[in-house]
C-alpha cells in the first residue's frame, strides 16, 4: 500500500446555514487518480479548495502527510512543504493568470518558493517546450484564447512540480483538441506516480483517467467511493446523484428514452 497523502475525517463546510459539504471522510494514497463526481453545487470545488488549504473545514480535519492542514499550520514551516507538494488548477484560468507575461506566470510559483533564479529559468523554458506553448512566452495572458489560457494555467502549476495535482473542472470550455492535449499531459504525469484529484462533469475523462471515483450527492455527502469501473457502472447511483440524466427524443414514430454518459445506448425504447 502506498503512503497515505490525505486523510479527511468528518469534514463539513458551511456558508452560514447553507452546507457545502456534510461529514465527508476518505483517504487518498500516493499515486492514486481520484475523480470527484457530483451535480452542480454539491461542494466539489469547496472540497478541492480545502484540500489545497485555501478554505478550512467548519468541522472535522484534513491531514496532509500526517499534518493537519489548518490556518495556523500554514502560517509556519509547513507552508512551504505543502505549497510545493500540492498544485491546484482553478476552473477559471483568468483567475489564475495574474502576471504580465506567460513566462512570468510560469515563474511565479517557483520564485515564491525561493528556488534559485537559474533553476526557475530552466524549469520555465523546459515546460514551455514540453507543453508546446513556447510561442506564447512573452504574450500577456489576457490576450490568449481560452484553450491557451488553460494550457498556461496548467503549466503555471506544473512549474512547481507538485506531487499532488488538484484539478477543478479541467476540461471545462476546452475544444476537443485541447481536451486530448490535456489528457495526454495528465497520462504522462501519471506515469511519474503523481497523485491526482479531479472534480469534473466529464465522465469520459474520469472513465479513462481515474482509478477511483467519489460521488458527492445533492445532500452534500459521499454517495459512493470505490473503483471507477464499479461506480461508473452503477446507473441508478449516477441518476440519483444527478450526474447522468435520461433524455427523450424521436426517430420517426419511435420514441427513445435513454441516458447520456456511459449509458448512452438506444436500446431503451418506449
Amino acid at each position: 500500500m502506498n503512503e497515505e497523502v490525505y486523510k479527511i475525517e468528518g469534514v463539513s463546510f458551511s456558508y452560514g446555514k447553507l452546507f457545502a459539504l456534510k461529514d465527508i471522510s476518505f483517504s487518498i494514497c500516493q499515486g492514486e487518480s481520484v475523480g470527484i463526481l457530483g451535480a452542480n453545487g454539491t461542494g466539489k470545488s469547496t472540497l478541492l479548495k480545502m484540500l489545497n488549504g485555501l478554505v478550512f473545514p467548519t468541522h472535522g480535519s484534513i491531514k496532509f502527510l500526517g499534518t493537519e492542514v489548518s490556518e495556523d499550520a500554514l502560517r509556519g514551516d509547513f507552508l512551504r512543504c505543502f505549497r510545493e507538494r500540492v498544485g491546484f488548477v482553478f476552473p477559471e484560468p483568468d483567475v489564475q493568470l495574474f502576471c504580465p507575461t506567460v513566462f512570468d506566470e510560469l515563474a511565479f510559483g517557483p520564485l515564491q518558493l525561493e528556488l534559485p533564479r537559474e533553476e526557475v529559468k530552466k524549469r520555465v523554458e523546459s515546460l514551455l517546450e514540453m507543453l508546446g506553448i513556447a510561442a506564447l512566452r512573452d504574450r500577456a495572458p489576457y490576450t490568449l484564447s481560452s484553450g491557451e489560457k488553460k494550457k498556461v494555467a496548467i503549466a503555471s502549476v506544473l512549474s512547481i512540480n507538485p506531487d499532488v495535482l488538484l484539478l477543478d473542472e479541467p476540461t471545462n470550455g476546452l475544444d476537443p483538441r485541447t481536451q486530448v492535449w490535456l489528457f495526454e499531459i495528465l497520462q504522462r504525469l501519471k506515469e511519474l506516480k503523481k497523485t491526482f484529484v479531479m472534480s469534473t462533469h466529464d465522465l469520459s475523462l474520469v472513465e479513462d483517467f481515474a482509478e477511483r471515483v467519489i460521488v458527492i450527492d445533492e445532500a452534500h455527502t459521499i454517495a459512493a467511493d470505490g473503483p471507477a469501473t464499479k461506480v461508473l457502472s452503477d446507473k441508478d447511483l449516477l441518476l440519483r446523484a444527478n450526474i447522468i440524466h435520461e433524455h427523450t427524443h424521436r426517430h420517426g414514430n419511435i420514441t427513445h428514452i435513454h441516458s447520456h454518459g456511459p449509458f448512452s445506448t438506444h436500446d431503451e425504447h418506449e
Partner: peptide, 23 residues
C-alpha cells in the same frame, strides 16, 4: 468574488504576502 479567487490562486502557488520576481 474575483479578488478573493485571485488571492486564493496566488496563495495556492506559494504567495505569502511578499511578491518575488525576476530582476
Amino acid at each position: 468574488n474575483m479578488a478573493e479567487e485571485v488571492n486564493m490562486a496566488m496563495a495556492s502557488r506559494g504567495f505569502a504576502g511578499r511578491i518575488k520576481t525576476f530582476d
